[in-house]
Structure formats: structure tokens, C-alpha cells
């Protein structure tokens, strides 16, 4: 009997997965809906998000700064939907050492609306682990195939600590550089 129940659960699980509808977003935002439906998978065309994906690099005489961006199918826990959303990791190291994406806290998370992906300028939240703050990245794809990387403070009220110490000024990583795509 237990085996039958187990098999039925497996079958229904597959049916549920198959019932998930992939919704390819178009450039023009659709009209308002009356509710957020569940079991949808929202994504833009792969070629639309793909132009931002990959490993992007900036080098100067002392340091290497790398960004790795991937499109990830992610569960929206509150609705039961999935969205394909850009996420990333960064590394920043001396030029003579390996810049590797080994610290998962050094992360980026897409922060624009989905329709911005059809353009060339998107934004991310980035977790500056060293300065313990979240920054706002403007990630602009230029005509020559490079990316203009601009890192700024985020919007918000910030309480100065009781000892008078403000939040760290600036960031521990580059704030205004041109990134090239690693081949």
C-alpha cells in the first residue's frame, strides 16, 4: 500500500511540474492582471538576458576585478512561481593571485524590473562583504561590447551609530570602471 501511495505521489509531482507554464515576457509590458497566478515560470527570451551573462573583467596594474553573471531559475516562495533572474558573484584580488568566485556572500542580485532586460542598462544589488553594506550597481552594455560599471550607495534612511560612526563611505571594490567580457 505504501508503495502505491509513493508511486502516486511521484506521478502527481511530475504532473505538477509539467503543468508549470513558461511565460516568455515580451518587450511591451502586458496589461494589468487581476491576480498573481501561481505555477508560472516568468522569463525573458534567452537571447535577451544572455547578452549580460558571462564573466566580466577589469584589470589595473595591481588588481583584478571579476564579475560572473548567470541567469538562474529561482522560486518565488510567496507565490509559488519561478522567475529567471540574473545573479552573480564577484572577486577582487591582487593581480598576481587567482581571482576566484569562491565566496558566495560576495554576490550580486538583479534589482531592475524584468522589462529593463530588453534594453542595455540594468541594475544589481551587490553585497560588499568587506564594508558590510549593499550597493547599487548600474550595469550598462556599451556599443563596443564592453560594460560600464557604476557602483553607488543605495536609497534609504541610514541611522548613524550611537558612537557617531556613519556607514562606511564608498566601497571596497571598484565603483566606476569598464569591464570587458572574458572569452
Amino acid at each position: 500500500m505504501k508503495n502505491i501511495i509513493f508511486i502516486l505521489i511521484v506521478i502527481f509531482s511530475f504532473l505538477k511540474i509539467e503543468a508549470q507554464e513558461i511565460v516568455i515576457l515580451k518587450k511591451e509590458a502586458k496589461e494589468n492582471t487581476e491576480n498573481i497566478e501561481s505555477n508560472k515560470h516568468y522569463k525573458v527570451p534567452d537571447s535577451t538576458s544572455g547578452k549580460f551573462e558571462g564573466i566580466w573583467v577589469y584589470n589595473d596594474s595591481n588588481k583584478t576585478f571579476k564579475i560572473k553573471i548567470v541567469n538562474t531559475k529561482t522560486l518565488v516562495k510567496s507565490s509559488g512561481n519561478y522567475v529567471s533572474i540574473l545573479k552573480g558573484l564577484y572577486c577582487y584580488s591582487d593581480i598576481n593571485s587567482n581571482c576566484e568566485f569562491i565566496d558566495i556572500d560576495k554576490s550580486l542580485f538583479y534589482s531592475s524590473d524584468p522589462y529593463k532586460l530588453f534594453g542595455n542598462k540594468i541594475s544589481f544589488n551587490i553585497n560588499d562583504v568587506e564594508y558590510k553594506k549593499i550597493g547599487h550597481v548600474i550595469f550598462e552594455l556599451l556599443e563596443d561590447g564592453t560594460v560600464k560599471w557604476t557602483l553607488q550607495d543605495r536609497e534609504g534612511i541610514r541611522l548613524v551609530k550611537s558612537d557617531g560612526a556613519k556607514q562606511n563611505k564608498g566601497f571596497s571594490i571598484p565603483t566606476n570602471v569598464i569591464l570587458t567580457k572574458e572569452q
Binding site: V23, T33, T74, S78, D105, Y110, D113, Y115, N125
Partner: peptide
């Protein structure tokens, strides 16, 4: 702590992304 705040912020962002994808105005 910073990790929890990052998670809070990202969850808010993804809920916004989901709602816009569903057709709601910004």
C-alpha cells in the same frame, strides 16, 4: 546581520519582479 538583510532585500526584489511579470504596474 548583513546576510539576513541581504536576504530580506533580495526577497523583496524578487517579489517585485514576480508581480511585474504577472502584469501589475510598478
Amino acid at each position: 546581520n548583513q546576510a539576513n538583510f541581504v536576504n530580506f532585500s533580495n526577497t523583496y526584489t524578487i517579489d517585485f519582479f514576480d508581480a511585474v511579470s504577472s502584469g501589475y504596474d510598478f
